[in-house]
Structure formats: structure tokens, C-alpha cells
């Protein structure tokens, strides 16, 4: 691929894993664009998409483990997987710091996922050639 056609992508994911196919489709899209040499600036999880970040999901062993797949992809390509803090707090996705702040007994934000603000979605829109949304 010639250099001029390389694009910067970001993905926004709005639906929960399993109940909607959107997150998995986004994962497939991410794999495809990376394998073609494009760059993936950020994957931003918003609305019910934040459920992708819980480390308490335990899918049956004979089913695809989407979170594990995201984590592996993030390691392989140094991806920035960002979960919206406002959406996450409302839906019970907390990292250690937020659990302390809100006096909660436990936290569940999976490794490789970072909790941050909506500004990260806006920044992704500003710096990416293409921002692709998945889910309603």
C-alpha cells in the first residue's frame, strides 16, 4: 500500500457485547483496517458499549471471548481503548480510583481499558480521517 492511502481511523462503540453484534463487528473492522496497514487512533466505548470493559463477564468456553480479543489486539498494536467515565459510572463499570472515590467495595474495569472523558471521543473525531460508529 502506498503511503498516501494510509488513513487514521477511530471507532466509537455504543452497544453492549453479546446482546448486540455491534461490538464484535467493530472488532472485525479494527482487525481488517490494522491488517491493511491503516492506523487505529482510538476505540471509544460509550453508552452501553462501556459493558465491553467489565472484567466480570464469564462467557462459555466454546464461545468467542470478545474482551480477550480486544485485549490481545490492544497489546499487539498498542491500542488506546477508552471507556467514557460518565457512561461507565452510571452502568457500574469502575476502575480502582473511581471505586475508592465513590466508596464502592470493588472495581471491574478490565486491563487494557482506560476510563476517561467524552473529550477523548471529540479528540478522536478531530485527529482521525475516519470516525466509524458501531451500534445505535
Amino acid at each position: 500500500m502506498d503511503h498516501a492511502s494510509i488513513m487514521i481511523f477511530s471507532l466509537a462503540i455504543y452497544s453492549a457485547p453479546y446482546s448486540s453484534q455491534a461490538s464484535y463487528t467493530a472488532y472485525q473492522f479494527a482487525v481488517a483496517l490494522l491488517s491493511q496497514g491503516h492506523s487505529l487512533h482510538r476505540v471509544f466505548f460509550y453508552q452501553d458499549g462501556v459493558h465491553n470493559a467489565t472484567n466480570l463477564a464469564a462467557p462459555p468456553q466454546d464461545e468467542f471471548d470478545l474482551q480477550k480479543a480486544w485485549q490481545q489486539l490492544a497489546k499487539d498494536y498498542q491500542l488506546d481503548l477508552v471507556v467514557c467515565i460518565a457512561a461507565a459510572l452510571r452502568r457500574g463499570i469502575l476502575n480502582e480510583g473511581e471505586a475508592k472515590r465513590y466508596d464502592k467495595a470493588s472495581h471491574n474495569c478490565a486491563e487494557e481499558f482506560t476510563i476517561s472523558g467524552l473529550g477523548q471521543l471529540v479528540e478522536a473525531a478531530a485527529v482521525s480521517d475516519k470516525l466509524i460508529s458501531f451500534g445505535y
Binding site: G117, G119, L121, A126
Partner: peptide
């Protein structure tokens, strides 16, 4: 999202 975009001067 709209308000965030406005804050970040988009």
C-alpha cells in the same frame, strides 16, 4: 457529546 465537542472548540 455535543456539549463536549463545543467545549473542545470543534
Amino acid at each position: 457529546v455535543a456539549l463536549a465537542a463545543a467545549i473542545y472548540d470543534q
